[in-house]
């Protein structure tokens, strides 16, 4: 286990360098020297903005010096100051937003796994029945529907027509004065629509995956043995089969992170949730380069951390990996 851990952590360094290099390339797409011609006419990019960019990224210095300086700053979590009028350090702006985005994504993940896995199991145990086809159509609809559009439609139905759910923000006006339970209830009501839409959209991948691994596992000899022993079907399915089918699903947990973090741009923008996605979108629209770059790097690092956690969880769950007999 220790050797696996060391190897896995060592592997982070090339990934770390790669992420920063790609971000560095993206920065150089910004209006500096190389693309001067293209943006010289654009009123959005003022001479002052260019000056500030040059100053912060040292755009007049050789590339490797720029990169090294930038890396050094990042090691100290210095992503520069936002171009917004308040001019606050990027890291401070992001810090106050991360808890919102992370906690919403964690709840969405729990909902996704809590719903998709049982759906997949039911589809597998009722293979080719009407029930299987029904849930398949349901999850495919969620996969194909443009989430921002579904969000609009639901906002219209529940928020405007029926007026039973709030359609924007995280809290009502004056929620700060509410006591514990009422405050929680208020927040929960605000989260119903965004979480509902996010979960519906993400069910397909995981539930289909659960279905196919379950079908694979159910065909194995030890399942036949368990049935032959006379174990009740419920025990066979949920204790013997599901446990083995769940293993590869742990890795999916890591893979679904970038999608969730990226998707938060759309949800937070539509539902006016003050999270990292909304901040990022505002940064993009106002061409707040330090902010955009900072969030891009931080988002990638969060994903990296998530993948590492998922891999470790996998190693803990699967003895074959822990003892190094599998790659």
């Amino acid at each position: 286990m220790f050797r696996y851990l060391v190897r896995r952590v060592l592997l982070l360094f090339p990934l770390f360098i790669g992420i920063t290099l790609i971000t560095f390339v993206v920065i150089h797409l910004a209006p500096g020297e190389p693309v001067e011609m293209q943006t010289a006419l654009s009123p959005k990019v003022s001479a002052k903005t260019r000056e500030r960019l040059r100053e912060f990224y040292g755009l007049d210095k050789p590339l490797h010096v720029q990169y090294a300086t930038w890396l050094g700053r990042m090691a100290k979590l210095d992503f520069g100051r936002s171009f917004a009028p308040d001019g606050r350090p990027v890291i401070d702006k992001v810090k106050e937003r991360i808890p919102v985005t992370l906690s919403i994504n964690v709840i969405a993940l729990i909902l996704e796994f809590g719903l998709a896995i049982p759906i997949g199991v039911i589809a597998a145990t009722h293979r080719d029945t009407l029930l299987d086809k029904g849930v398949t159509i349901f999850v495919f609809l969620g996969f194909a529907v443009p989430t921002f559009w579904l969000a609009l439609v639901l906002m219209y139905i529940f928020g405007v027509k029926l007026t039973i759910l709030p359609i924007s923000g995280l809290h009502s006006l004056g929620a700060a004065n509410l006591n514990g339970f009422a405050w929680l209830w208020d927040t929960a009501r605000h989260l119903v629509l965004p979480l509902g839409v996010a979960t519906f959209g993400s069910l397909a991948g995981l539930s289909r995956y659960t279905r196919s691994t379950m079908l694979e596992v159910i065909g194995q000899d030890y399942i036949t043995t368990a049935r032959a022993k006379g174990l009740p079907e419920r025990v066979v399915i949920y204790r013997h089969a599901l446990r083995n089918a769940l293993l590869p699903i742990i890795t999916l947990l890591g893979f679904s992170l970038p999608g969730l973090i990226g998707g938060s741009v759309i949800f937070e923008t539509i539902f006016a949730i003050p999270g990292m996605g909304q901040l990022f979108y505002m940064g993009v629209m106002s061409r707040d380069y330090p902010l955009v770059m900072g969030i891009l790097v931080i988002g990638a690092f969060l994903t990296l951390a998530g993948n590492l956690l998922a891999d470790l969880a996998y190693a803990v769950a699967d003895p074959r990996i822990r003892h190094g007999s599998a790659p």
């Binding site: 090339p14 990934l15 790669g18 992420i19 790609i22 993206v26 920065i27 797409l29 910004a30 209006p31 693309v35 293209q38 893979f255 992170l257 970038p258 999608g259 973090i261 990226g262 998707g263 741009v265 759309i266 990022f280 979108y281 940064g283 993009v284 629209m285 061409r287 380069y289 955009v292 770059m293 969030i295 891009l296 988002g299 990638a300 994903t303 990296l304 993948n307």
Partner: peptide, 18 residues
């Protein structure tokens, strides 16, 4: 490395630059 980036962030960032 490419899979580490939240794709939507990467796309928005590039388009913001251009």
């Amino acid at each position: 490395i490419m899979l580490c980036f939240p794709t939507f962030f990467l796309m928005l960032a590039v388009i913001a630059m251009l």
